[in-house]
Amino acid sequence: MGSHRRPKPPSRSRLAVLAATAGTVSLLPTQSQAAPKPSVDEVRQQVEELYEEAETPTEEYNATLAKKTKLQKAANRTQERVADQQAEINEIRDKMGPVAAAQYRSGGLDSSVQLFLSADPDNYLDKAQTLDRMSSRQVALLHSLESKQRELTQTRAEALEKLTAAEKARKRLSGKKQEIQGKLGKAQKLLNSLTADQRARLKADEAKADKAAGTSDSSASYKGSASGRARSTIEFAYAQLGKPYEWGSTGPNSFDCSGLTGAAWRAAGVSLPRTVNEQYSAGRKVAKSDLQPGDIIYWYNDTQHNGLYIGDGKAIHAPRTGKNVEVTPLDSMPFFAASRP
């Protein structure tokens, strides 16, 4: 005869384990829920977009760096003036020493000298009735001191203003640097998500595209018809072929786009502003149909990317992070404008 005993109910701890297990299982992503990994072509496109997005803050960084450098130099010069003016004031005080000593030996310090040695003479000079008790030398020294102190106060205010502006520029630099590094970091993260085989394929595809578009061969030399400063400019740029792009760099071992164009023209004796936009604003605009070797090419817009026209429908430029200075077809990117330094 079978037993009619009821089965023992599961304990609370067992129920808890079962419930937790069931919850865990329900939260596990199924194969259909997992996000598909981007393809090599998708990664390439996203990386290119991130590099392109990094160009604008790079140029803003360059402009801010140039401004900060200028402000810091001006602040340093102003601080030197402060030191010089303080030395002049100290010299006047030294000259007052013998005057005070002589008056002390003759029967005590003149009240004007006592006031000068113990406090700011400005208030004293406002009391005209005391001037008749001062020698002409004392009057001259105190007036000189009053003038120098006014100058010193003004110069110190100027120095503080310039130092404050330089510090604000430094903080903006830090913000732009973080923005640039953030975009480059995202690009690198995407590249790291590829398998070794995918990365090899991507590298091979880029090398093939580079070969079809132009050259980064460091042994190449310019054989065009440019002359004078334009030729010197292009020859300098050719000497940089194969050197890496680096944002914020003006050489000699690496360049960003406007860093290369500026350095090339500087080698020919022509000084250009630092950024793409400033170089665009400074040069005389020329039509695409009137391009001559040495002209600066602007792609996309007047703030993003530039290079040097070398003739035969080609240009030399510093492309982007991860690539080197290279020659490329003029129409490899959307042409925006050209200028002639």
Score class of each variant (00 low, 15 high):
L15R: 14
G262M: 11
D256A: 02
K95L: 15
I316A: 10
L184V: 09
L241Y: 05
G262A: 08
I297A: 04
Q79F: 10
D41N: 12
P36V: 13
V286Q: 05
E88M: 03
A315D: 06
E91A: 12
T195D: 06
T155H: 00
A338M: 06
F255I: 14
M96D: 11
A87E: 12
Q33R: 07
L50I: 05
Q129G: 07
L241W: 02
T328A: 10
V82T: 06
V40G: 08
R170F: 01
K168W: 05
G228K: 03
D132F: 07
T24N: 01
P273F: 07
S232F: 00
R150K: 14
M333A: 13
T164W: 00
Y298N: 08
A239G: 15
A100M: 09
Y245K: 09
S147A: 14
K183Q: 11
G23W: 02
S254H: 03
L27G: 01
S39Q: 07
K177G: 09
R320P: 07
E80K: 13
S136I: 06
Y104S: 12
S249H: 03
S332C: 06
Q103F: 07
N324E: 09
Q279P: 04
K314W: 10
A83N: 10
S106E: 13
Y280G: 02
G182M: 10
A196V: 12
K183M: 09
S254T: 08
T155N: 05
D302L: 07
A101K: 10
E146H: 13
Y238K: 09
Q181V: 01
V113C: 02
E60I: 04
A75R: 09
K288M: 10
A264C: 00
S106L: 08
K171I: 08
A63L: 01
T321K: 14
T30N: 05
Y280T: 06
A337D: 01
S254Y: 00
A318W: 01
D256V: 00
E55T: 10
T24G: 12
K148Q: 13
R81S: 15
S332T: 08
T303D: 08
T155W: 01
V139L: 12
V139R: 11
F116T: 09
S249L: 02
D94V: 12
Q114R: 08
G214K: 04
D312L: 05
V286M: 03
H143K: 15
R231F: 02
S339E: 05
R284I: 12
T21D: 04
